[in-house]
Amino acid sequence: MKDVQSGPADVALPIDRVGVKNLSLPVRVRTRDDKEEVRHTVAEVDLYVDLPAHFKGTHMSRFIEALEGWSEALDYVSFKTLLQSVCDRLEARRAHIRFRFPYFLTKKAPASGSPGTMDYKVTLTGELEDDQLTWGLGVDVPVMTVCPCSLAICDGGAHSQRAIVRVLTRHTGFLWIEDLIAIAEAAGSSPVYALLKREDEKVVTDDAFANPAFVEDVVRAAARALSDHPQIDWYRVEVESQESIHNHNAYASIESENEL
């Protein structure tokens, strides 16, 4: 049959990214605490290649074929294998991919030890060019914050709220999702939990009020920890506080000065 896509383009301009978006794919993600264990989840996948000026179009079915032929757990090697397969199938010089998925962890309450399932929104990106993989990992982490100003001016009380710490990194080698979650949670006044008994609520509240933090404090603490991480080459951290007594959200961000 005639291969229309490989024919000449009406407008001979190169395309930076062409491909497929919003594919749903079951994936397996390795865990830090037990490297042989995997978490099952469903990812939304975007997959692209560059297209030279002389080609009219790309072969969309080959993206799907690459995904269907790939069934490994997500790690550095399998990610690179998938992108290389895309480059080979599409005869492309450069391939891009993005996975977005919920990552589930069992988290024990601080006093009772009661287990509860937490979900974290994860983004995994990759670009392969000339056999060199550049990849990034991001995660959205909820934390609790207590306002230092409110605590200082009120008699025995202060307003508190949930904040989202959004971390995006570029790194060398493999970086665990759990590492970024730990950095984000440590930056807030307290972590949040899926299940809390009364004794747990007391511990969380007491700890949070002993560690009040503005949104500026949270973003700086997270940025410092990301800067100190030996595998992280670049990062951007954003903190958005869902204010409990204001009709707006508070926001702060810091981006690494290192080049991507």
Rank of each mutant, 00 (worst) to 15 (best):
V192F: 12
W70I: 02
S160N: 13
H159T: 00
L82M: 01
A158I: 03
E91Y: 14
V146A: 01
K107W: 13
C87Y: 13
T117P: 15
P115K: 01
T125C: 05
A187S: 13
A109V: 03
G157P: 14
L82H: 03
I153P: 09
G136W: 02
T125Q: 06
P148N: 06
R170Q: 06
I183T: 00
G116A: 01
D119W: 13
L137N: 05
C149G: 08
E127C: 07
R93S: 14
V146H: 08
R100T: 07
A95T: 02
R170T: 05
V141H: 02
A182Q: 12
Y76P: 09
D88T: 15
I177T: 02
S190I: 04
M144Q: 10
T125Y: 12
V86K: 02
P148I: 06
S71Q: 12
A163F: 05
V192L: 07
T81Q: 12
Q161T: 09
D131K: 07
G113H: 09
C147E: 09
D119N: 14
D140P: 10
R89Y: 12
V139H: 11
V192D: 11
G156N: 09
V122R: 01
A186Y: 14
T117V: 14
E199K: 06
E199Q: 13
A109M: 02
T123N: 11
I177A: 06
F79N: 08
R93E: 15
L137F: 08
W176R: 00
A73I: 01
K121R: 15
M144A: 13
D131C: 07
D88C: 11
L67H: 01
D200R: 02
L128I: 03
L105P: 12
C154I: 04
W70V: 00
I181E: 01
A111T: 10
M144D: 11
L137D: 07
W135F: 11
F174Q: 15
G173Q: 03
V165R: 05
R162M: 04
F101P: 00
A66L: 06
L90Y: 14
V165F: 11
P191D: 08
V86A: 00
G138I: 03
L74H: 08
A109Q: 02
E72L: 10
R94V: 02
G126W: 00
I153G: 05
S114G: 14
G116F: 04
K108A: 14
V143F: 08
A66D: 09
A73C: 04
W135V: 04
T134A: 01
R198E: 11
V122I: 03
S71N: 14
T81A: 11
T125K: 01
G136C: 00
D131Y: 15
R94E: 13
L124T: 02
A95L: 03
V141W: 07
D155I: 06
I153F: 15
L180H: 04
E91K: 12
L196G: 08
S150A: 09
S85H: 14
L74Y: 11
R94F: 13
L175E: 11
S189E: 05
E199R: 08
P102I: 01
L105C: 12
F79G: 08
A182V: 05
G136F: 03
A109N: 00
F174R: 11
D200F: 10
F104D: 14
T106C: 15
